[in-house]
Design a protein around this nucleic acid. Structure first.
Lengths: 351, 351
DNA sequence: GCAGCGCTTTGGATCGATCTAATTGGGTTG
DNA sequence: CAACCCAATTAGATCGATCCAAAGCGCTGC
C-alpha cells in the first residue's frame, strides 16, 4: 500500500528531464551544480524540479558514484554526558559539511564493535570516527586499512598509524597535581574507575610522572566502582586506611560527584578539610556545591577536531597519519583548598 | 588511488556466485537467508563469501528493494543528558532490529528541522523518530504524511494523527504536588525554563490542575533562565518577593540542580527549610546533596518505546495512530521535607 | 510415457542516479 | 570553405543488488 504509493509517486530525474525537455544527463549536471550547463537550461530544470517535487535519491547516486555522504560514529557509551558532548561536536561539523552521522553504540565490547564495523561498511559509510572499546587490538585498525576505509580514532588511541584526536591527559594531570601541591597537599590519591584503555593509562601515567616531578609518592591509585551510587560508598577509602589522603584527583567528574557526596555523608567538608579535583569539567561541575575544581578537556571541541580530521582525510587520502592533541585547562573553583595541617577534624588516623 | 583500490578490490555478489558455481540470483537468496535454496548450495555459497571476503552492499540493495534499514532520529539538543538517554534507548532497539540510526540535531529550530527532514528523505530512511522543535506546526507532519514516510513523535506532540511516545506529565505533576501538599506546603511554585512546546504546556497545565485539586493557588509559575549558571542566580525569586514559596517543583533536574546551588548560596537549607522537587530523575539526582526528590520519567524507556512504535508502524502501515504514554514515578529523597511552619529561619518576610 | 507437482535454480529486466565518450551547433581561423 | 575549437548537451553503459517469470529436475500417479 504505502510502499506502492511511494513507488508510484516517486519523481525521478528522468521525469524532471522530460518535463524540462532535456536529457537525464543534463538534469544530473544541474543537480550537481556543474558549471557545464547553460544558465537558461539550469533555470528551466530547477523550475521543473520544484514543480514536480523532485527528491534527490542518494541511494542511487551512491551506488554509481561510490560515496555516501555518510560517516559512521562508534561510541562506547551514550549515557555518559561526556560522550554526548563529544557526539554533539562531531555532529555539528559533519552536518555543516552536508554529510550525515550514522551512530552506533559499542557498549565498550570488542565483539560488538567488530560487528558494528562490518555493518558500517555494508552501509557504505565514507569514513568512521571511532572511540575504540577497551581491549581493541591493532588488528581491527589494520583490517580497516585493508578495507581502505578512512578512520579517525578519538579519545583513545590504539595505533600510531592512524589519525587520532584526543586530549593531553598528562598535561591535565600535571595541572591538577601542581595545583594541589602548591596548596600544600602531599598525600594525594588518584581515584580511577571504568574500563582500561589508552586514555586510562595516560591519565594514570600522567599522575605518576606529575607526582614524581613534585617529589611525591604516586602509589595511591585507587579503583572505585563504576556506578555512581556505589562510588558514594567508596569515599571512606580516602578518609581512612592505607589510602587515606588529604586530596583526591578523580578520573572524571562522575567520580568526583560521587566522592563529593560520599565525603559529605562522612561529615568531611570538601573545600575545607579535604580537596577534590574532577576531570572533564562537564556542565554540572560549576553547579555543584562546593563548586568543583576540574580539569577541562573540552569534549565538544574534541569532537569537532575529530570530524575535521576525518574530512581532511577524505579530501587527502595520501597524507600521513596526523595527531590532534588538545590542551587541558584547570578550572579552579571551591573544592580545592589549602592543606590545613594537623588541626582539622579529618580522621586520617594512620600509622 | 584509495578509491580505485576500493573499487577494484570490491567483491560483488557476481564474483561470489561465479566462485561457487551458481547464479547471482541464487547467491542473493543465500544472503537473504531464503528457505528456497538447498542446504549444500547454501553452504557452498557461504564458503565462497567467506573465502573471497564478500561485503554486502546495502546501497545497491536499497536501490532495488526500496528499503534502507536506516531510520532518522531528529533531536533538539544533544547536550542535554535527558536526550542522550533517550537516544541511547532508541539506538538499542533499532540496533537490535538490525537497523541503524542516522542522527541529526535540530537545535530546536524549525527551519533547520525542515531542512534536515528533507535530507533524511534524500538519504532514504525507512522512518523517522522526531522530537519536534518548539514551534513546529502540523504542516510538517502533513507533508510527511504525503511523503508516506513513517514517523513517530517523541516527548513532544504536534498532531494526534501521528504515532506518539511520551510521558504522562500531568500524573508526574500530581505526584509532586500531592507529595508536597501532604508535607504541609501550601506556597508551592513551579520553576520553568526553556522553549515552549507541548511537553512544556502539559507540565504547566498539570501543575495548575494538581494545585487546584488540592485547593491551592497555582499562580506561581516562574520562568528562570536557560543556562544552569544563570539559574543559580535566580534562586532568590523563590525566597523573597511576590513569588516566594516554601517549596518549588522544577521543570527538570537541571533547574533543580541550579536552584539547589542557588538556595545553598543564599544560606537556605534545602530539605529542611525549603523543599525542592526535580523532574526526570537523571543519574545525578541521587548523587546530589541533599539527594534530590525527583519525578522519574524514564527517558531510556521512552526511547525504546518510540523505536518499537516505529518498528510496528513499518510492519503495519495501515493501523491507526497510536499513543504510548508512560507513567511517572516519584522518587522521594532528601530535598523534600515537611513544612516547618513559621519557626524556621527562612527569610520569606512577605505581607 | 507423460502430465503434474514440489523443490531449486536461473536469466534478464530493473531500481535511479553518474560517468564516458561522442555529438551538436555556433563561432573563429587560415 | 574546410578545419578547428569551445561550450553545451546527450545516448548508452554502468554501479551491485533484487524481483519476476520461467525453467530444470527428480518423482509420483495414472
Amino acid at each position: 500500500m504505502t510502499l506502492d504509493q511511494r513507488k508510484k509517486n516517486r519523481v525521478t530525474l528522468l521525469d524532471v528531464a522530460r518535463h524540462a525537455g532535456v536529457s537525464r544527463a543534463t538534469a544530473s549536471l544541474v543537480i550537481r551544480k556543474s558549471p557545464l550547463v547553460g544558465a537558461d537550461t539550469r533555470a528551466r530544470v530547477e523550475a521543473s524540479m520544484e514543480e514536480l517535487g523532485y527528491v534527490y535519491n542518494m541511494g542511487a547516486a551512491r551506488l554509481r558514484a561510490d560515496r555516501s555522504l555518510t560517516i559512521g560514529v562508534v561510541i562506547p557509551n551514550l549515557t555518559n554526558p561526556f560522550f554526548a558532548e563529544l557526539l554533539a561536536g562531531i555532529e555539528t561539523v559533519i552536518d555543516a559539511a552536508g554529510m550525515v552521522v550514522i551512530l552506533v553504540n559499542s557498549g565498550d565490547q570488542v565483539g560488538r564493535q567488530d560487528m558494528l564495523m562490518t555493518r558500517m561498511r555494508e552501509h557504505g559509510v565514507d569514513g568512521i570516527i571511532l572511540c575504540p572499546a577497551a581491549g581493541t587490538g591493532e588488528g581491527l585498525l589494520e583490517r580497516l586499512g585493508e578495507w581502505h576505509l578512512p578512520l579517525v580514532q578519538v579519545l583513545r588511541r590504539v595505533s600510531d598509524q592512524v589519525d587520532y584526536a584526543g586530549v593531553d591527559y598528562a598535561q591535565g594531570m600535571r595541572q591538577a597535581v601542581d595545583h594541589l601541591s602548591e596548596l600544600g597537599h602531599r598525600e594525594i590519591a588518584f581515584a580511577v574507575h571504568g574500563p582500561v584503555h589508552s586514555a586510562y593509562e595516560e591519565r594514570v601515567e600522567g599522575f605518576r610522572q606529575a607526582m614524581q616531578a613534585k617529589g611525591l609518592g604516586a602509589e595511591k591509585v585507587v579503583r572505585v566502582p563504576h556506578q555512581i551510587s556505589a562510588i558514594v560508598d567508596a569515599a571512606h577509602l580516602f578518609s581512612e586506611g592505607p589510602t587515606a589522603s588529604t586530596a583526591v584527583i578523580c578520573f572524571n567528574d562522575v567520580v568526583a560527584l560521587g566522592l563529593s557526596a560520599g565525603l559529605y555523608d562522612l561529615g568531611i567538608q570538601v573545600g575545607r578539610d579535604f580537596s577534590l579535583i574532577g576531570f572533564d569539567d562537564v556542565a554540572d561541575a560549576d553547579a555543584m556545591r562546593p563548586r568543583l575544581t576540574s580539569v577541562s578537556t573540552f569534549p565538544e571541541a574534541i569532537g569537532e577536531g575529530a570530524a575535521n580530521l576525518l574530512l581532511d582525510r577524505l579530501a587527502h587520502p595520501e597524507i600521513g597519519p596526523r595527531k590532534l592533541v588538545k590542551a587541558t585547562k584547570l578550572q579552579i573553583r571551591q573544592s580545592s583548598a589549602p592543606w590545613r595541617g594537623g588541626d582539622h577534624d579529618l580522621r586520617t588516623a594512620r600509622g
